[in-house]
Lab assay of single mutants.
Amino acid sequence: FHVTIHVGDITFHIHGVSEEEVKKLEELVRRGADWREIKKTIEEIEK
C-alpha cells in the first residue's frame, strides 16, 4: 500500500506498507497520536 498521513502541517508519505501496518497507523491517527509517535512508527515500518 501507499499511505499518506497528514498531521497538522506535516505530511508523511510511506510506500510498501502492509495491510497490518496500515491498520496500526490508522489506529494511531484515530487516537490522536502526535506526529513524533507517528514518525517513530513509520521509521519502524520502513526498516
Score class of each variant (00 low, 15 high):
residue 37 E to C: 02
residue 22 V to Y: 14
residue 28 L to F: 03
residue 11 T to Q: 06
residue 26 E to I: 13
residue 13 H to E: 12
residue 38 I to A: 02
residue 14 I to A: 05
residue 35 W to P: 10
residue 40 K to G: 09
residue 28 L to S: 02
residue 36 R to C: 11
residue 4 T to W: 03
residue 12 F to H: 03
residue 39 K to R: 10
residue 22 V to R: 10
residue 17 V to H: 03
residue 14 I to F: 07
residue 6 H to E: 09
residue 9 D to Q: 07
residue 21 E to Q: 14
residue 21 E to A: 14
residue 24 K to N: 08
residue 5 I to D: 00
residue 35 W to Y: 12
residue 29 V to Q: 07
residue 29 V to E: 04
residue 46 E to V: 14
residue 9 D to H: 08
residue 40 K to P: 03
residue 41 T to W: 15
residue 2 H to N: 14
residue 34 D to I: 01
residue 4 T to Y: 03
residue 20 E to R: 08
residue 11 T to H: 15
residue 46 E to F: 14
residue 19 E to C: 04
residue 23 K to I: 14
residue 14 I to W: 05
residue 20 E to A: 13
residue 28 L to V: 08
residue 2 H to G: 07
residue 27 E to V: 05
residue 42 I to N: 00
residue 4 T to R: 03
residue 47 K to Y: 08
residue 11 T to N: 04
residue 37 E to Q: 04
residue 29 V to M: 13
residue 21 E to M: 14
residue 47 K to I: 10
residue 8 G to H: 03
residue 45 I to M: 10
residue 35 W to D: 07
residue 12 F to S: 01
residue 47 K to E: 12
residue 18 S to C: 04
residue 6 H to C: 08
residue 44 E to I: 08
residue 19 E to F: 14
residue 21 E to S: 11
residue 6 H to I: 14
residue 12 F to W: 10
residue 19 E to R: 05
residue 9 D to I: 04
residue 40 K to V: 12
residue 2 H to A: 06
residue 34 D to M: 01
residue 13 H to V: 10
residue 11 T to Y: 10
residue 11 T to V: 12
residue 17 V to G: 04
residue 17 V to F: 15
residue 42 I to G: 01
residue 23 K to S: 10
residue 3 V to Q: 03
residue 31 R to E: 09
residue 29 V to D: 01
residue 37 E to Y: 01
residue 15 H to G: 05
residue 34 D to S: 08
residue 3 V to W: 02
residue 46 E to R: 10
residue 24 K to R: 14
residue 14 I to C: 02
residue 4 T to Q: 04
residue 35 W to Q: 10
residue 37 E to L: 02
residue 43 E to K: 10
residue 5 I to Y: 01
residue 10 I to W: 15
residue 41 T to V: 14
residue 8 G to A: 04
residue 26 E to F: 10
residue 33 A to Q: 03
residue 15 H to D: 07
residue 27 E to R: 06
residue 38 I to S: 00
residue 23 K to L: 10
residue 45 I to R: 05
residue 10 I to P: 00
residue 20 E to W: 08
residue 32 G to R: 05
residue 5 I to G: 02
residue 30 R to Y: 05
residue 18 S to H: 05
residue 14 I to E: 00
residue 38 I to K: 00
residue 37 E to S: 03
residue 3 V to H: 05
residue 25 L to S: 00
residue 26 E to D: 13
residue 32 G to C: 08
residue 30 R to W: 04
residue 19 E to S: 09
residue 27 E to C: 03
residue 24 K to F: 10
residue 27 E to T: 05
residue 36 R to K: 13
residue 18 S to L: 06
residue 33 A to R: 02
residue 6 H to F: 06
residue 43 E to Y: 06
residue 37 E to H: 01
residue 27 E to F: 05
residue 46 E to I: 15
residue 34 D to P: 03
residue 30 R to F: 07
residue 23 K to Y: 13
residue 18 S to R: 08
residue 26 E to L: 13
residue 35 W to M: 15
residue 22 V to W: 15
residue 24 K to I: 15
residue 36 R to T: 14
residue 38 I to R: 00
residue 38 I to L: 07
residue 42 I to P: 00
residue 24 K to G: 05
residue 4 T to H: 07
residue 10 I to Y: 14
residue 30 R to V: 10
residue 18 S to N: 11
residue 10 I to L: 13
residue 6 H to P: 02
residue 20 E to H: 12
residue 45 I to N: 03
residue 12 F to Y: 14
residue 39 K to N: 08
residue 24 K to L: 15
residue 16 G to Y: 14
residue 8 G to F: 02
residue 4 T to G: 01
residue 22 V to L: 14
residue 45 I to W: 14
residue 2 H to P: 12
residue 19 E to I: 11
residue 46 E to D: 11
residue 23 K to W: 07
residue 42 I to S: 01
residue 21 E to G: 13
residue 34 D to V: 00
residue 8 G to T: 02
residue 6 H to K: 14
residue 4 T to L: 05
residue 10 I to Q: 15
residue 17 V to R: 02
residue 11 T to I: 11
residue 10 I to S: 07
residue 43 E to M: 09
residue 29 V to H: 04
residue 1 F to Q: 15
residue 3 V to G: 03
residue 29 V to C: 07
residue 16 G to H: 13
residue 18 S to M: 08
residue 7 V to L: 12
residue 27 E to D: 13
residue 11 T to P: 02
residue 20 E to F: 08
residue 11 T to G: 02
residue 45 I to G: 03
residue 37 E to P: 01
residue 45 I to P: 01
residue 15 H to K: 05
residue 1 F to V: 14
residue 14 I to Q: 02
residue 47 K to Q: 12
residue 44 E to R: 10
residue 22 V to C: 08
residue 47 K to L: 12
residue 28 L to N: 01
residue 25 L to H: 00
residue 41 T to C: 07
residue 46 E to Y: 11
residue 9 D to V: 04
residue 4 T to M: 04
residue 30 R to D: 10
residue 27 E to S: 11
residue 18 S to G: 09
residue 42 I to R: 01
residue 33 A to Y: 00
residue 32 G to P: 02
residue 41 T to Q: 08
residue 41 T to P: 00
residue 28 L to D: 02
residue 24 K to Y: 09
residue 10 I to A: 09
residue 16 G to C: 08
residue 45 I to A: 05
residue 8 G to M: 04
residue 42 I to H: 01
residue 44 E to C: 03
residue 23 K to R: 11
residue 42 I to V: 10
residue 8 G to P: 01
residue 45 I to E: 01
residue 44 E to W: 07
residue 32 G to V: 03
residue 28 L to Q: 07
